[in-house]
Design a protein around this nucleic acid. Structure first.
Lengths: 167, 167
DNA sequence: GCCATATAGTTAGTGTCGCTAACTAAGTGA
DNA sequence: TCACTTAGTTAGCGACACTAACTATATGGC
C-alpha cells in the first residue's frame, strides 16, 4: 500500500490536482464520495464508542467546557440541533453530574449550563480512549496519506462551521 | 508546550507538511478533530436529506446496485452492519420496489437482493439532489481548499474500507 | 437414516439521536 | 392590561443500530 493509486478515481484526482479548474461535475462527484465516507465513518465511530455517552453528549460537553457557561439556546445553536434535543442532552449530562445547571437571576426563563469538575475529569479521561480506534486506523496509513488527511481537516471544519451571526 | 493551542492549527499543519515525523500526539489530536468533524457533518447531512430515504438505505441501495445481487449476509458485511439491521433495510427497500428479493434455489436459507429498474432510476434521480447541500458548501471553498479536500477523500475511503477477506 | 452442530436470516426488545407540534412560563411594550 | 415574543419543556414520532433469542435449513459423523 505504499503506492499512490487512488482506489476509485485516479484520472479525476490527477486532473484535479494539476489542472486549474475543478468542474462542477468533479465537485459533485467529490461531494458524493465525501457524503458516503462521512456517513459510514460516523457509524463506525459510533459502533466503537463504548463509553455509553454517544458522540452527541460528548460534543455538547466539550462545547460547554470550551465556551464557558452557555444558555441552552446558545448551546443548541452551537451544536446545530433543535431546542428539544438540547433539553434531553442537558438532562443526561446533569443527571450524570457532568454539567451544572443554574437559572439566570434576571431572566427566569433562561438557564445556563457550566461544566463541573467531574465533567472536566471525564472529558480528560475519555478524550484519548474515545479516539483510540481512529488513531489505530490512522497508524495504518502511510506518511503521505496522513499529511493529506491532516491538510483536509481544516477544510472539514470550515464546512461544518456555524454560519457567523453578525452581532 | 512551546506553541499555542492548536485549535485550528496553522502551526501544526505547517510543521507536519514540512517535517518528516507526525508525532503520536499530533495523530491523536488529528483523530479528535476528525472524529468531531465527521460526527457533526454526518448529522448535518442527515438534516438536509429530504428524500425520506436516509443515508443508510441509500448506501445499501447503492451497494446493491454496484455489486450485483448479494445475499443479505454479504450486504451486511459490506455495509458493516449487524444482520438484523440489514433485514430491516432490505424490508424497506423491497417495500418501495427498489430491490427485488429472491430465494436461493440450492440453499433455501439464503436470499439474494438485486436492484430493480425503479431502484436504478431512483438512484439516478436522487444522486444529484442528495448532495446538493454539500455541493453548495463546497462551492464556498476556495480552490486550494477544494484540492486539499479532494486529496483526502481517498484517504477517508481507505479508513472506512472493509478489511479484506482473503478468499 | 438420524442427531449434533453450524449457518442464514428473522423477531423481539432496547437505546440513542433527532425532529415537529404544541405547550408553559416569563419578559416586553403599547 | 392584553397581545406578543422568547426560552425552554413535554409529548409523540421516526430513523437507525444493537444484542439475545429464535426459526428454518443444511451438513457431517456415525
Amino acid at each position: 500500500m505504499t503506492n499512490a493509486s487512488p482506489t476509485s478515481a485516479p484520472t479525476l484526482t490527477d486532473e484535479a490536482l494539476t489542472d486549474e479548474a475543478l468542474t462542477d461535475e468533479a465537485v459533485t462527484e467529490m461531494a458524493g464520495r465525501l457524503r458516503f465516507s462521512v456517513a459510514r465513518m460516523a457509524r463506525l465511530l459510533r459502533q466503537q464508542d463504548q463509553s455509553g455517552f454517544g458522540p452527541t453528549l460528548n460534543a455538547a460537553l466539550s462545547t460547554v467546557a470550551g465556551h464557558g457557561p452557555l444558555t441552552l439556546g446558545e448551546l443548541a445553536a452551537r451544536e446545530q440541533v433543535a431546542p428539544p434535543t438540547i433539553t434531553k442532552v442537558v438532562e443526561k449530562l446533569v443527571a450524570n453530574g457532568l454539567v451544572a445547571r443554574t437559572p439566570d437571576a434576571h431572566d427566569r426563563r433562561v438557564a445556563r449550563v457550566a461544566i463541573t469538575t467531574k465533567g472536566e475529569r471525564q472529558l480528560q479521561t475519555y478524550r484519548t480512549r474515545r479516539t483510540a480506534w481512529l488513531v489505530g486506523r490512522l497508524h495504518e496509513l502511510d506518511h503521505d496519506e496522513l499529511v493529506r488527511l491532516l491538510a483536509a481537516v481544516d477544510v472539514l471544519e470550515a464546512i461544518i462551521a456555524v454560519p457567523e451571526e453578525h452581532e
